[in-house]
Design a protein around this nucleic acid. Sequence first.
DNA 1: ACCCTCTGTGTGATTTTATAACATTGCGAG
DNA 2: CTCGCAATGTTATAAAATCACACAGAGGGT
Lengths: 175, 175
Amino acid sequence: MIWNNMTSDTQFELTGDTAPVGFQKHDHKTCVAAGLSAAENRCKEEGLRLTPVRRRVLEMLLQEHRALGAYAILDRLREEGFGSQPPVAYRALDFLAQNGFVHKIERLNAFVACSHPGASHSPAFMICRKCDAVAEAQSTPAKGVLGAAARAAGFEIERTVVEAEGLCPDCTEKA
Amino acid sequence: MIWNNMTSDTQFELTGDTAPVGFQKHDHKTCVAAGLSAAENRCKEEGLRLTPVRRRVLEMLLQEHRALGAYAILDRLREEGFGSQPPVAYRALDFLAQNGFVHKIERLNAFVACSHPGASHSPAFMICRKCDAVAEAQSTPAKGVLGAAARAAGFEIERTVVEAEGLCPDCTEKA
DNA sequence: ACCCTCTGTGTGATTTTATAACATTGCGAG
DNA sequence: CTCGCAATGTTATAAAATCACACAGAGGGT
C-alpha cells in the first residue's frame, strides 16, 4: 500500500547491487513504463504538452528511481543533444513538478519521479542518509498535530513538505 | 500552547506594522532575552561554547523573529566587525542548529530562532508564502501515517522536516 | 610559567544550485 | 497565412554552500 512496490509480486531481476530503489527491489521496466504512460494520459486529458525534453527528464527520473540533482539531469540532456544550460533542466523539472509527475526533495535539492502517478496527493519521503535512497509515502497534512495547530492559528495550508531522514532497512542491517 | 505566544498576555507595543513575528503580536524584548538566557544555560550545563559570533547570530535571529538567509546574517556580521566570509555565518549557524537553538527552513534556505528553547523536539513550521512569516509548532514524527509507513518499511527515522506552506491569518484577511 | 593540543575564527577560492533576460522556433487558432 | 503564444535555447549572473589552509586563543598537563 505504501510505496514503490508497484505491480505484482516482487521480482528479483536486479543483480542485487544496482542502485537503491526505494527500499524494495522491483521491476524497473514496469514502473518506468507505467509512470510514462500515466503521465501521457494525464497530459492528454488536461491538454498539457509532454514535450521531448520533459518526457525524457521524467523517463530519466523513473529509470533512476532515486533523487537526482538538476545538474545531473542537465548533464545527460546535454549528452543527448538537448539544450545545455541550466534553464533547460529547471524548466522541465518545474513543469513536471507542477503537475505532480515528479517531486522536489527540499532536503537534498534534488528531484524524484512520483511513485503514485495519477491521483493528486501530498507526498512524504523517507531519505536514507547513508545511501540516499528515497521512498515516497503519503502524508495527511490536515490531520494530526500540525493540522490542529494550523486551524488554531488560522493558517491555511496549501502545500506541505514532509521529509524523514534516517537509515533505510539495508543500511540498518549493514550497521 | 502551540507557539510564539511566549509569555503572558499579548502586548501591543508594536506599532502594528513591524516585521511579521509568527502570526501573533508579542513582546520581542522578552523573547530575545528568554531565548538568549535559555541558550546560555544549556551551554553552561553541557560545556558548549556560546562564543561572541554564535551569540550574536542567535540574538539576531531572535530579534528578527523570522527566517533569515545565511547571507543576510553574514552581511550584518561583517558590518559589526566579525569575519566577512560565508564560513563565518555558516559555522555559527551549524553550531546553533546542531544544538537546537535555531532551525533551518529547508523550503527557504533560511534560518529561524527556535521558539521552544530548552526541550529537544521535532519542529514543524508554517510558512506564509506571501509575507514570509514563520511560526513553529511541534510535530510528532513517530505518530501518524508517516510513522506507520516507516515502521512497516523498517526505516529508522532520525530527524524530520515538516514545513507547511500557505497563507497566514493576516494575509488571508487581506485577500 | 611553559608548551601542547584542540577548537574556533578568519581568509581566499571554488563549487553547487537557481534565476534573469532575451532571441528564436514552431505549433495552433483565427 | 499569420498572428500569438508556449516552449526551447543561449548568455550572464545571482544565491547558497563548501573547501582548504593559516592563525589565534582557551585550557589542560607538567
